[in-house]
Amino acid sequence: MNVDLSRVVRLARIELTSEEEHRISPQLAAVLRYVEKLKELNVEGVEPTAHAVPLENVLREDELRVSLTQEEALSNAPKTVNGLFVVPKIVE
């Protein structure tokens, strides 16, 4: 089982040290080998289950609720300026 770890960590936005990469790579491969097990089963015609309990039409009426204050909203922010959450400059 070959996993292109660099592609996956880029998607997941996780920077790994090379040690971590060396350790995780075979562990991941072992888990993926193990889950290959599922291929033994014939799942043709089986509906996938996304929810453990079958519910539908769970909706909320369009009614206002109290929001956080700006101070509360920003209280955990690593960095703020003028009421905004500050991040490194976004380059498109």
Binding site: A12, I14, E15, I24, P88, I90
Partner: peptide, 27 residues
């Protein structure tokens, strides 16, 4: 940039088991 900030934050902030599972789930 935000991407680098995200990746470093997550690389350092998450423990190894969490990283392993996120990577598996992403895959």
């Amino acid at each position: 940039d935000p991407q680098e900030m995200n990746s470093k934050t997550r690389g350092i902030g998450f423990g190894e088991e969490v990283k392993r599972r996120i990577i598996l789930g992403t895959y």
